[in-house]
Amino acid sequence: MSVDDGVAIVDFWGVKKVVRLDVVDVPVAPGDYVLNHVGFAIRRIPAEEIGDTLALYDELLRSADGDLLGGDVRGELEGTAAHPPQARPEDLP
């Protein structure tokens, strides 16, 4: 949210916390995501990489595509699941 003198105020979903920037390897600016560890930012996370990770997961799913079990779930993924599906006993392995 703000960066000043080696220290950033970071917004963790509504919680504001002071995080030190001593060891982060690239300049951090307001609006960036950071990975926090014991009060120190250890990485700036570019926003586009969040999407990349989700894409990686979907690629992992494709690689398992011979598997019939996954079919119904993939259908659900492509549809818009406004509400998380309820746990049904038959879903459990």
Partner: peptide, 21 residues
């Protein structure tokens, strides 16, 4: 909140199926 935290139960179930495979 869930998007950023990678807590989507539907994807999770799909990944669990892939893991079983």
């Amino acid at each position: 909140l869930d998007a950023l935290r990678f807590r989507d139960p539907v994807r999770a179930r799909a990944l669990a199926d892939a893991l079983a495979h």
